[in-house]
Design a protein around this nucleic acid. Structure first.
Lengths: 134, 134
DNA sequence: ATATGGGGTTCCCATGATGGGAAGGTCAAG
DNA sequence: CTTGACCTTCCCATCATGGGAACCCCATAT
């Protein structure tokens, strides 16, 4: 009765590319789905749900290994929220650190660029900074 | 009189790893340095200066292809600062966009984490978000 | 029936910037 | 002559993702 959910269907409903679905299977992030006689993969509602979970975790920037852990906690009804929170907090710190690094670069460049007249003369504080400052 | 500057010396004075110096040469970002009879690379002061330039540009997050362009402008005494500025402004926009994306993730997660009691109970808004929200 | 098109499958290669490490050559000092 | 510290080239790994080849399967249009 329920139509076979192909990898394309799974991809479209979850927003995870077919390429990545196969990849997640190959690295053991998701378990291998059922196959038809033709060796075509088909996905259960549970599979789809799990792919949706992965998609949302990726959208929040979690690395695959974190997601592996989060999936295990998700499946474990006796999990402690403390463990989930710890993963999230570490990730938040990582995101903040990376964002701060990018912003520092941006701020430096903005300062240099604001002092660069940007005309056809060669003088340029940006080039000067790369040239001279250590 | 000037002692031979080996790749290690160049690495130590510029902060670019020997590995990366060879890599930059292999992709044509820097030109091949002189070699001793033993095929050991040795670097001129100009080479060192150029590696320092690359190092600073990398520290500001410029991708290699931008640096290739910046190096060309640097060497060109008749450059227009407008061209340098344009590269910098594009890069600033890129940095800002990436930083904003990371901050958005962080903000979402901070919100979820702040509502997560983080004890030994399983209930957790972080998991709920990954589970349910689309 | 058969051609066409659009799925599926596996496998290899590429990205960007960087590092690890193997296998082998060279050189100075003990 | 060995030891150790360099150098050389070459291959492989990271992280998440996509491109594309070569091939199989099936439904529909001619």
């Amino acid at each position: 009765m329920s139509e076979l959910v192909t990898i394309r269907d799974a991809s479209m409903t979850t927003g995870v590319s077919a390429k990545m679905i196969r990849h997640y299977e190959s690295i053991g992030l998701i378990s291998a789905p059922a196959r038809t006689e033709n060796r075509y993969r088909h996905y259960s509602q549970r599979d789809i749900h799990e792919l949706g979970f992965i998609r949302k975790a990726r959208d929040l920037g979690f690395p695959i290994e974190d997601i592996r852990h989060l999936l295990a906690l998700w499946r474990d009804r006796s999990r402690s929220s403390a463990e989930v929170k710890a993963i999230a907090l570490r990730h938040i710190a990582d995101l903040d650190e990376k964002a701060a690094a990018l912003q520092a670069m941006s701020a430096t460049l903005k300062h240099l660029a604001s002092n660069c007249h940007g005309d056809n003369r060669p003088d340029c504080p940006i080039i000067d900074a790369l040239d001279r400052l250590g």
